[in-house]
Design a binder for these strands. Sequence first.
DNA 1: AACTGTCCCTGCAAGC
DNA 2: TGCTTGCAGGGACAGT
Length: 278
Amino acid sequence: MPELPEVETVRRGLQRHLAGRRIVEVEVGRERVVRRTSREALIAGLTDTVVERADRRGKYLLLPLDSGDSMMIHLRMSGQVLLAAGGTERPAHTHVVMHLDDGNEAWFADPRTFGEVVVFDPDHIDNELPELNKLGVDPIAERFESSDLHAAIGRSKRALKPLLLDQHVVAGIGNIYADEILHDARLHPERAASSLDARRVERLHRSIVKILTSAISAGGSTLSDSQYVDLMGVGGSYQDEHAVYAREGLRCLTCGRGFVRRIVSGGRSTHYCPVCQR
DNA sequence: AACTGTCCCTGCAAGC
DNA sequence: TGCTTGCAGGGACAGT
């Protein structure tokens, strides 16, 4: 499941292989992935434009085009962006194909079609992509200090787990990294945010940066379903470093005394060690 | 403000 | 073996 580290890994691939390339032809299969506008709008918006660079905000990939518009790609649950030589057999559920001027093709594939691709006008974000301006601070791309986290948390009575998952607070953290971050910070996922003293907010801040940075270095997490791969189809390795996620019932690797417990918090499965997370 | 539930969708695993 | 059911999850949204 692509979260910030996976999306950042894809972004780096796009910056390397798509930036500077001209899109010469576009094919759109299932219309659901272009539901925000239309098949025609995506084809018209991308055809014969040059991708200037690849940016990211939270889990949103943003690719400014030389036309003045930008392409936004969101992978959601099962989306993949892949690069391949022209004519290569496409995987199932390939919904968008961009033919590039170097003979390669960029594909957007997504079995569950929660993901989307859209071309939008950055001058009209409020109309065309309103959620973008509502995103919280990006903990990697932007300046992110402990004081930012303190301000974002405020006097919120919410539990830490749903708070970390809220993209309006900090953008980019999903279910896997929320669990890993809270474990690293030795904080209980159901602890109220308002109960954190300055020292604990600082600890949480450090863990957010540390876990996300480590996961990016490892190329993200590829779970047993192999859903996430980078632009070249290669999986990440951070799943080998997971301390709690999907380790229900196993002994805690950190304290060696507790056993990882799984609960549902904020409607999401949540893993933590009841001994070292308080 | 904060919570719960619903929807979108497919693939996989468990249970019968 | 072959079916049905349930579950996984990001995020917007509605309802309480």
